[in-house]
Nucleic acid binder design. Structure first.
Length: 368
DNA sequence: AACACGTGGAC
DNA sequence: TGTCCAAGTGT
């Protein structure tokens, strides 16, 4: 939430319509809400963790991570006191790793600056890393029952249909407009359930591809349903397809250890450990790897190609060739962002999926 | 404002 | 296979 306009003139609903939507939605939610692990209590810390995990991530994916994470870090204080490497390990495989770095930093800040209590004001909570307009509204409304909008992708979709809005929901302007609508739609009595009801409806009934309008509690209020437009809404600009990139991964051994490289602090898989990775279109990728590693003071004796890995990110598609080799000499100390790891040590590191695939491929090639 | 940022599942 | 996502945020 940035700032909510309080002018009533532009609202797409009357007071009667508002009352109808509130009543039907709340009644429906009381009956049909899912029993999700983060709905067992209203602990702001648990709500916060769940909201960050749920960013761009499906509920079914989040559930096991949520259980493990809360078992490992049961309280805000426990998380704040933990080593970052352990925190990231608990996030391994969830993706968007900056989320957990921001969460960890923010939790530490809450301990230092707010006495360990998650802030209950929009101004304070919005200053925390990784807490944007949606997450701020979600925590304030769900944990503290504050009347603050929590407009996520579900709500944008529900509103687009409910009020027959053809505005592109990818636009900032559209999100702000709908935040205003949401603010004026929230009942004073129960912001907590109303915000969740709106999202739950989007998740369970007013779904992206085939909405279940027949069972929708507010279909009589829905302008898109009345016009038969529910399948045309919401309007959203199409995403560009991922760009293909060719790379080589090094599987460089020194006895029973393999060489790892830490990725740069910014960009894709920022700060994560992985196999030595070189972006190259060179016809002789083996030579490119040798030269590149030599520049880092590491001499290798190349071996055979151990396989290929394909991995699709949101904006990138990696085609990686895994090249085996042994270390035959290191000039001075290993650079800061490089390290050796035994296979057992590999297990203790947080490895992104693309490198997990590569390790599997290399090992199965070697033991084939 | 537009784009980068992970992953797995559905169609 | 390709496409579109799923409870967004940071830049």
């Amino acid at each position: 939430m940035t700032k909510v306009s309080t002018k009533q003139s532009a609202l797409p609903f009357t007071e009667e319509r508002k009352a109808s939507i509130q009543r039907r939605l709340l009644q429906w939610y009381r009956i049909h809400q899912r029993d999700l692990p983060w709905r067992r209590d209203q602990d702001p810390y648990k709500i916060w963790v769940s909201e960050v995990m749920l960013q761009q991530t499906r509920v079914e994916t989040v559930i096991p991570y949520f259980h493990r994470f809360l078992e490992r870090f049961p309280t805000l204080e426990a998380l704040a006191a933990a080593d970052e490497a352990d925190v990231i390990k608990a996030w391994e495989g969830l993706g968007y790793y900056s989320r957990v770095r921001n969460l960890h930093a923010a939790v530490k800040e809450v301990v230092e600056k707010h006495g360990g209590k998650v802030p209950d004001t929009l101004e304070a909570i919005s200053q925390l890393k990784g807490v944007g307009p949606y997450t701020a509204g979600a925590i304030l409304s769900i944990a503290y029952n504050r009347r603050v909008p929590a407009v996520d992708g579900n709500v944008l979709r529900v509103f687009s249909r409910l009020f027959a809005s053809a505005d592109d929901i990818a636009r900032v302007q559209t999100r702000k407009k709908m935040e205003t609508w949401a603010y004026h739609l929230i009942p004073e009595s129960n912001p907590r359930d109303f915000n969740q009801a709106l999202m739950e409806l989007g998740a369970m009934v007013c779904t992206p591809t085939s909405p279940s309008c027949e069972t929708c509690p507010i279909r009589s209020d829905c302008l898109a349903y009345q016009k038969g437009m529910q399948h045309e809404l919401p309007v959203k600009k199409k995403a560009k397809p991922p760009v293909s990139v060719s790379l080589v991964f090094g599987w460089i051994r020194d006895g029973d250890r393999v060489l790892l490289e830490r990725r740069p602090e910014a960009g894709l898989l920022a700060g994560m450990w992985g196999l030595p990775t070189l972006e190259t279109d060179a016809s002789d990728s083996v030579q490119a790897l040798i030269v590149w590693m030599k520049k880092h003071g590491i001499s290798i004796q190349p071996g055979e190609t151990l396989g290929m890995v394909e991995h699709v990110f949101t904006h990138r598609k990696w085609h990686a060739t895994i090249i085996g080799g042994t270390c035959v000499g290191i000039k001075g100390e290993l650079p800061q962002h490089w390290r050796w790891a035994t296979l057992d040590e590999l297990e203790t590191l947080a490895l992104p999926k693309v490198y997990q695939k590569a390790v599997q491929t290399a090992l199965s090639s070697i033991f084939a």
